[in-house]
């Protein structure tokens, strides 16, 4: 376990709201650490629609999810935010000195007087196929990602899906597998064409089996898989050997452990006041899509506004003895210095 990190503000989520919060906090000399379950910044913007244009960001007639994220990262660079990517926040506890301690599944501990939940629709987690009893095999025989290829050597592998992840891992694991079966609901793929071509070559060479089918049942004991029942397009069922099953259906958003933080939730959203965007738990704020209040509209621009007001309130918690000096970035030479503009 590492030493706890001490900072002013711990932010859960590195989507547009969490990123812009760094800027507003930074203008007030407040430092921030951000934790995100994804391996890069942007949240929904980069996970769901990196290439799709957004038309309702004030002053940017059209910008893609990736471009907006890149620009926010550039805008907050002067404040050197610290990112903890690929980590899921698992706990929020009150310290004896009144500060909060945020913990992640990777063992990171952040101690701060202010916590800002900017978690959008929740944590992005792999979609779990609707196969009865699949939970019992997760972690031992069912995996939603390949971390170490060697773990799969000499095994009967079953992969499901038609995107790049499914095809890439079919190609990578086929040479070391005892057998590899790919199942997909149609004989067409959204994956890159050269990967699909290569997969078909392996099928022709007898090194990969491909079925237009879906996985209906898993068979094994004590979480150890031995075979799976597939159903073809004609509904006929058949069995294939499978010691490992790797479904690739992308990610979906789940509130996750935040639901157990003891915050007041309304329809899985965190209730906040509209002056400070603080939850009913003092020192814990919520901004962006995850917060709710009378009249809330889930727009990126709402998250920006919420971040600005939150920062003002956070200042008084983090610096109880200081006076907040409100300044405009256009006119303040002090702010210009912070932004590296002078």
């Amino acid at each position: 376990m590492n030493e706890p990190i001490e900072t002013d503000v711990a932010i859960v989520g590195a989507g547009p709201a969490g990123l812009f919060a760094v800027f507003e906090l930074g203008l007030l000399d407040l430092k921030a650490h951000l934790i995100d379950i994804l391996d890069r910044p942007g949240g929904q913007c980069t996970e769901l629609y990196p290439e799709k244009p957004i038309y309702d960001i004030p002053g940017l007639p059209t910008v893609t999810g990736q471009q907006l994220t890149d620009r926010l990262m550039e805008q907050i660079k002067p404040f050197s935010p610290q990112f903890h990517f690929g980590e899921m926040v698992t706990g929020l506890t009150k310290c004896a000195d009144g500060r909060w301690k945020l913990t992640s599944d990777a063992g990171t501990e952040i101690v701060a007087p202010v916590v800002v939940v900017a978690a959008g629709g929740g944590s992005f987690m792999p979609k779990r196929p609707p196969v009865p009893g699949i939970e019992a095999y997760e972690g031992r025989s069912v995996f939603y990602a390949v971390r170490k290829m060697e773990d799969f050597r000499g095994k009967d592998i079953l992969i499901a899906g038609g995107g790049d992840s499914a095809l890439d891992w079919t190609l990578n694991l086929a040479p070391i597998a005892k057998s590899l079966t790919l199942v997909h609901h149609r004989d067409g793929f959204r994956a890159a064409q050269h990967s699909v071509n290569r997969m078909r070559e392996l099928v022709d060479a007898g090194k990969v089996k491909f079925h237009v089918a879906s996985v209906k049942a898993l068979h094994g004991e004590n979480g150890v898989l031995s075979s799976a029942t597939l159903a073809g397009a004609d509904k006929q069922e058949f069995q294939v050997a499978a010691a490992a099953f790797i479904p690739f259906f992308g990610l979906t958003m789940k509130l996750g452990p935040i639901a157990d933080f003891g915050l007041k939730l309304t329809d899985n959203l965190i209730a906040v006041d509209t002056a400070k965007f603080e939850s009913e738990t003092p020192g814990v704020f919520a901004i962006g899509d995850i917060c709710t209040y009378s009249g809330k509209v889930k727009l990126i621009l709402s998250g920006f506004h919420e971040a600005a007001l939150m920062a003002q309130a956070a200042f008084h918690i983090c610096r109880p003895n200081d006076r907040l000096r409100f300044q405009y970035t256009t006119s303040s030479s002090n702010l210009h210095k912070k932004l590296g503009a002078s």
């Binding site: 609901h185 067409g188 879906s214 259906f249 992308g250």
Partner: peptide, 13 residues
């Protein structure tokens, strides 16, 4: 849409 359906669970005809 057909491509995106590849990411859905329990796809039927």
């Amino acid at each position: 849409e057909t491509d995106m359906l590849d990411m859905a669970l329990g796809v039927e005809p």
